[in-house]
Amino acid sequence: MKPVPASTTEPDGAAGLLVQALRVGELSAVDFSVAPGHILALSGPSGSGKSRLLRALADLDPHEGSVCLGDLRQDGVPGHRWRQAVMMVPADSQWWGDTVGEHFPDGAPEDLDALGFEQDAMDWQVSRLSSGEKQRLALLRSVAHRPRALLLDEPTANLDPVATARVEAWLGDLIKRHRWPVLWVAHDPAQISRMADAHLRIAGQRLEEAPCS
C-alpha cells in the first residue's frame, strides 16, 4: 500500500483515516491509513476479528491505540460525535421503529431509486422487510446521517448478484464524490478487485498486505 498523508483535514472537509498501534482482541500493533475517497478491503477467516476491528474503529469496544479522521482524534470528541463521523454499518442491521421512514433523519433520501426502491419505501413496515432490503436500506440510512468515513461490514452479504452490482456502483460513486475513506470487509476476491484500492488480510494477530486482484 502506498503511504498516504492522512492526518489533516482538507479544505473541502474530506479527511483520511489514520490508525496507529491499535490493539483489540487478538489483533495487535495494527497500523494503516486510508486516504480520502479510497476503499481499503479487509478480509480474513470468520472469527479472526474483522468485526471487532471495525467496532474498535467506531469506538464501540475498549481498545488501545490511536485513531484519527483528519484533524479529529477519536479520544478528543465525545463518543457519539466520533461515531457520527466514522460510521459503522453492521452486517445485520437493527431497526427500532415500526416504519422505515422513522429511521431517516431528513425524510426520504434522494437515491432511493439508485438502490431499486420506490418512494413509498419510507412507509413500509420494518417487520416485513427481507434481509436484502434491510441491508440496502441500512446503507441508505447510514449515508443519510452524513458520515465522513464508512466502516462497512460485508455490505452485500445478503444480496443477489444484480443487487450487489447496484450497491457497488452506488457506493463507489458516492465514495468518490464525497471523498470518504472506507474500510470494507469482504470475502469475495472478485468484489475486492472491483472495488478496493488496497487490501489487508488478517493473519493470526496481525494484518498483512494482500493483492487486490
Binding site: 467506531a58 464501540l60 463518543g79 457519539h80 460525535r81 461515531r83 457520527q84 463521523a85 460510521m87 459503522m88 454499518v89 453492521p90 442491521s93 437493527q94 427500532w96 440510512r141 447510514s142 446521517h145 458520515p147
Partner: peptide, 8 residues
C-alpha cells in the same frame, strides 16, 4: 449498539 453506530 446499532443506534450508537448511527451517532446517537
Amino acid at each position: 449498539e446499532n443506534r450508537l453506530m448511527l451517532g446517537q
